[in-house]
Design a protein around this nucleic acid. Sequence first.
DNA 1: TTTCATAAAATGAACCCTCATTCATAATAA
DNA 2: TTATTATGAATGAGGGTTCATTTTATGAAA
Lengths: 191, 191
Amino acid sequence: MKQQIADRRQSILDSSLEIITQYGFHGSSMKVIADNAGVASGTVYLYFKSKEELINELFLEIRRKINDVVQNAFDEEEEYKKNFANVWHSLYDFYLNNLQVFRFIEQYSSSPFIVEATKRKGEKILAPIYEILGMGIDKGYLKPMHLTALLSLVYGPIVALVRFHQTNEINLNEDVIIEEIIESCWLSVKK
Amino acid sequence: MKQQIADRRQSILDSSLEIITQYGFHGSSMKVIADNAGVASGTVYLYFKSKEELINELFLEIRRKINDVVQNAFDEEEEYKKNFANVWHSLYDFYLNNLQVFRFIEQYSSSPFIVEATKRKGEKILAPIYEILGMGIDKGYLKPMHLTALLSLVYGPIVALVRFHQTNEINLNEDVIIEEIIESCWLSVKK
DNA sequence: TTTCATAAAATGAACCCTCATTCATAATAA
DNA sequence: TTATTATGAATGAGGGTTCATTTTATGAAA
């Protein structure tokens, strides 16, 4: 039945995320991914045309999740600064609680592996944040800088923090008052 | 003679950087690296024990270069804020003018490939910056935050900017007044 | 409910290819 | 001549993908 098809597909995607974030794209064989998903290697090819497509589909799924996180954190009714903090904090929390997702994106975006394929599919992973920042400039809350420069000042620290957390250079659960960092970040972009 | 040994070794390292930033770690075969360096594949093994060691050596060489960039940008005689800007700008320029180096580090640090091996070798790639930030706190120029948090606020935007530059989301030669970004960055960490 | 024929889904051995590494041989230097 | 350095064909392991075969699901008929 339909339900099972979806489950299989999903379990292969889940398995891929696990294996890939542990061994890298090329280090992850289809055999191992299949085993980990509890299916035969041939089965993977019933749901995905190739390894490349599998990885791209995984990327698209993850992008969807991230977009949701950002969208849900934004509340039109709230004041802008509060939204800024909420979005920042949500994305940060999401990465911290989904380190595999974070690792996957890092690998995906810094790997010459596929990239082109998904670039063509338009829509960047951070599109919703661009919108929020653009609105911030329009309404006079943020410095009128190049949007990507603003994004770098805001998103760069998130990525850096989670990365350092991963390499144990910082313990984000204990060492750091995150609100302090968000406030600092805000100081760099507020008008 | 000794000179030639060094040349061969270096040309293999140079070739590796080219090939690896183009095709990724696993996508770069020793054969292609050797061809590109103008040597036979067996020759590579006269200078490096294995592919893994080759990549690690390349990393160490690059780390040395980055440390030099930071060290050279710092001038004890100058005032702290000026040093902050100089170091920031130097590192940024270095990455922008050596995109292959940047790409390599990104790949290296987000890849589960080796990592462990070099982590054990101690000394982080950004050690000199840690020192500068620590000094900034001691002398009262910077907020007394966790050092790694400070580093994230300062280094995160550099990485993000160069990344976006690479994916053509921003043209750092034309679109952006870099001093404006450095000033913003400073606002986020100054006391 | 049970049976059974057909369709759909799943399997995993086999195929072919690439790759890291080795080593007997050749070229070069001392 | 001897020692050093370089070569590249050969080796063996592993990987992505295919496909003949098996297993499972379906639903109409008994």
